[in-house]
Amino acid sequence: MKILHVIANLAARYGGPAQAIMGMTKSLAEMGNEVTIYTTNQDGEGVLDVPLDVPIIKEGVEIRYFPIQNPRVFGTSLPLARRLRSELKQHKYDIVHIHSLYLFHGAVAAHYCRKYEIPYIVRPHGTLDPFLYHRNRKKKAVVELLFENKNLDYASALHYTTEEEKVLARPFITHDRSFVVPNGLYLDDYQDKVVAGSFRMKFPETENKKIILFFSRLNFKKGLDLLIDAYATVASMKDDVHLVITGPDNEGYGETVKGWIQEKGIGDRVTFTGMLTGQEKLQVLKDSDMFVLPSYSENFGISVIEAMICGLPVVISNKVNIFRELIEYEAGEVVNCDSTELAISMMRILDNPDYSEQIIENGKRLVESQFQWSKVGESLNNNYKAILNM
Rank of each mutant, 00 (worst) to 15 (best):
L103V: 01
V96H: 03
K286R: 07
D351Y: 10
R137L: 11
V314A: 02
F179Y: 08
V181E: 01
P119W: 07
R365Y: 09
S77I: 12
A196Y: 06
K89S: 08
L380C: 13
T127V: 13
V194C: 00
I302P: 00
Q358T: 09
T162G: 07
R72T: 04
A107T: 11
F172N: 11
Y120Q: 03
N136P: 13
D249Q: 09
G278Q: 01
K115M: 08
E361I: 08
K375W: 04
T256S: 06
A386K: 11
T162S: 15
E306Y: 10
L132C: 07
V334E: 08
D225T: 05
D94P: 06
E333T: 01
D192Y: 12
T127F: 12
L145Y: 13
D287W: 10
A331D: 00
L293W: 04
N383G: 06
R85K: 14
Y112R: 08
F220L: 12
K202R: 14
M275W: 07
E205L: 10
K2F: 11
F199C: 06
G278P: 05
Y154N: 14
S369W: 11
R13M: 03
R82H: 09
D287V: 14
Q191E: 09
L282K: 00
D268K: 01
V315I: 03
K92Y: 03
I68N: 02
A343S: 04
N136Q: 13
G197H: 00
V335C: 06
E144G: 14
I316G: 08
Q370S: 14
I261V: 06
Q358E: 15
P55V: 02
Y116H: 10
L78I: 06
W260H: 12
A107C: 15
P204C: 03
L128S: 06
I302R: 03
L285D: 03
P51D: 05
T174P: 11
R348V: 07
Y65F: 15
E148V: 09
V314R: 01
V241F: 00
P67G: 07
T40A: 01
D153V: 11
N208K: 07
H111F: 15
D176Y: 04
S86C: 04
T277S: 00
V73Q: 13
V143F: 12
N352Q: 12
K319M: 11
K150I: 14
S374W: 09
L187W: 03
L88F: 12
M1L: 14
T127K: 13
G126S: 08
F66P: 06
I173K: 02
S339G: 05
E298P: 02
K89P: 07
L350F: 09
R365S: 15
G106F: 02
A157R: 06
F300M: 07
G274Q: 10
G254Q: 03
V304A: 03
A8R: 15
L10R: 00
Q279K: 15
V167Y: 08
H159G: 03
D176H: 08
E205A: 12
I68L: 09
I316N: 06
F66M: 04
I305A: 01
